[in-house]
Write a protein that binds this DNA or RNA. Structure first.
Lengths: 219, 219
DNA sequence: GGTCGTTTGTGAAATCCTTCACATAACGTA
DNA sequence: TACGTTATGTGAAGGATTTCACAAACGACC
């Protein structure tokens, strides 16, 4: 295989490891802004709510980025992790669903800052199509498949009601999208090779509810 | 201990198990609406994207709710899971941060439907305080601690900028809150017994970015 | 250059989670 | 009542992730 990278040698990287890496970058960037030069697995763990061993294991999945006895260079480590996560580039994102959540996402400038560029917005509601959210025009979802191909969209953010999810997922997958961020409360079915990540606020609240019901019969 | 429930006998329940339970309820409720009477671990697994064995294991953590040879009663199983998750009641929730994400959450009626009642909204911005979002008046965050006690708030949804998170967390914990849903991109520190769940859109996108960077050198 | 204190990187152990496989219970039928 | 069919509940096996513990590497200091 000619295109191998250091870390695609058939190793399974756990979801939680990726989440932690993502967190480490954010911490490191904060420290970069503060002008800190070096850090240690200990410090990163402390700040990220995990353990030093965990930090080192996470990093060791992809290489060795520190100096024994000294720790890590804040800037270099951030660069390495960004490159591991594929953040050295801009991703072209389409938002489908210009409802409450959708428009809130649009306004959130954190996305573009971190390399996720929302290039188009779609909705099925004729009342919304043609209107504006932010500086973008809402397009008719009928043109979604073509639009995805034309704009080279790689990631779709889905903020549509539950019923609409599966058809749209099928469509965007057909159009070549292989990454979907789904806000609807049910898991769409996708073929091998397509990644879906679900963000489900109600589930999170229910997990809180469980935790609170657990400890203490309370008031 | 007088107040024992079937499942608080010092058993650790994994996060993913809880998430799956949450998903099962949603599926079961859909089937309840469709008028289905019974189901099986097989069907639930199929619909929920997991395996029959997993479904049975998840349920067996809390009891046995089915009939061998027959399966589960849709309604009864839904009831059981709701009770496990502590959803048989209404939770009093305060929203802190009336920005984009905060207000989007407010309008999302799924919360109240599922027993999460947003009883108050707070913000630090003087320009927002006194104003209305939906039918609620935004209060000054200065009165947060007192408000939490007065209103009996049990869960706080935090949609504030990163810097503001830790001070507010400290404050709401002091006021007696033990469940926090945090939208800011960093993990606040909390004492034992307080549960924080993080929802982090950027992290999810970064996980997608990683997945897409992984397979195939692609176009 | 040798010694000391430090912190990484990593096999091995421990823990946690999922899958397997099957005994068990329930119902229908005769 | 006995038998066949079905699908649960659960120990045990298998995998995955986290923690442990320590050798190896580095700089500082004498």
């Amino acid at each position: 295989m000619a295109f191998e990278r250091a870390f695609d040698v058939a190793k399974k990287i756990s979801d939680s490891a990726i989440h932690r890496l993502s967190l480490y970058v954010r911490i490191l960037e904060e420290w970069e802004r503060e002008g800190r030069d070096t850090t240690s697995s200990e410090e990163l763990a402390e700040r990220g709510g995990t353990t030093a061993a965990q930090v080192r294991k996470d990093l060791s999945l992809f290489g060795s980025f520190g100096k024994r006895g000294l720790g890590y260079s804040v800037g270099e480590l951030a660069d390495h992790i960004r490159s591991i996560l594929g953040l050295g580039r801009t991703w072209r994102v389409a938002l489908v669903g210009a409802g409450r959540i959708g428009t809130a996402l649009l306004e959130y400038r954190g996305f573009r800052e971190r390399g996720f560029d929302i290039v188009a917005v779609y909705d099925a509601d004729p009342a919304k199509v043609g209107g504006c959210v932010g500086e973008r025009t809402v397009r008719d979802v009928a043109g979604l498949e073509e639009g995805i191909r034309a704009e080279g969209v790689e990631i779709v953010v889905l903020a549509v009601p539950g019923e609409a999810v599966q058809p749209i997922v099928d469509l965007v997958v057909r159009a070549g999208v292989r990454g979907i961020l789904n806000f609807a409360p049910l898991k769409p079915r996708v073929p091998e090779g397509v990644t879906v990540r679900d963000v489900n606020l109600v589930m999170e609240l229910e997990a809180l509810s469980f935790a609170l019901s657990q400890d203490g019969p309370d008031a």
